[in-house]
Write a protein that binds this DNA or RNA. Structure first.
Lengths: 121, 121
DNA sequence: TTGACATTTCGTCATTTGGCGAATTATAAT
DNA sequence: ATTATAATTCGCCAAATGACGAAATGTCAA
């Protein structure tokens, strides 16, 4: 029951649902999620930590950046099924659609503005 | 997103997950759920209220007793799918199995001991 | 009608949660 | 080496949550 509870608790927050939906479009680095949510980096980091702990998302570190993605194969069936439900439940949601629009802009400019160092290489 | 959040919040508590699993065996009256959970009636009532508000369960009043059941057709697809996921996630869980054993005893004796008035009719 | 019972509502309290900024860690640029 | 950047951890605070008992509500029994 503990794993199930970790999952439902992870999904029981508006911000974390937004993160799940945002990651449905592919992996994002923390700074991009911060830009989308307009929350303090420390706050976002905590949410990502909670989602990670539930097995719903995974992280990968690339030099200075940490990228998060929805966890696919390799995660538990419970987590996969929960993700499937959550993504379906959120699809079509008004605020989620706005988020994905905002995300398009963010991923377009992030390489210049958000992560300036990245473009300089 | 609000309905989705109501559902995930409803599922994000150990006691409420136990209630969902308990109702998988069929409807129960509040006093039976109280007996199973060993919590104060007021506490159980509040949990049932939260689950009702999310659309995951429904109630029916029969004279002096109120019976709760998992909501089926007629509830939203989100709720139905969430229930399906939750029930699958909980099936086989150790503490849930113990609960269902305890429930067997409760439903067997409740008509005599728990709801004495009921047998007197 | 009076009393008993099932359930809910209300008020209270301790714990958890979500937010922030400051400090810390790790990595890259100068 | 020093500085700057991305992310995390820590400590703090306000708000939400889950527990209880007392009181209120509605229904049945005597």
């Amino acid at each position: 029951m503990d794993e199930t509870l970790l999952i439902t608790k992870a999904l029981s927050d508006r911000t974390r649902l937004r993160i799940i939906a945002a990651l449905s479009g592919g992996e994002l680095c923390v700074c991009q999620v911060v830009e989308l949510l307009k929350l303090a980096p420390s706050t976002v980091s905590k949410h990502l930590h909670i989602l990670s702990g539930s097995g719903l998302i995974r992280s990968r570190k690339d030099t200075r950046w940490v990228y998060y993605r929805l966890s696919g194969k390799g995660s538990s069936k419970k987590a996969q099924d929960a993700l499937k439900w959550a993504r379906a439940a959120l699809s079509g949601d008004k605020s989620i659609i706005e988020d994905s629009k905002a995300l398009k802009k963010i991923t377009r400019v992030s390489k210049e503005a958000l992560c300036r160092a990245q473009i300089k290489r």
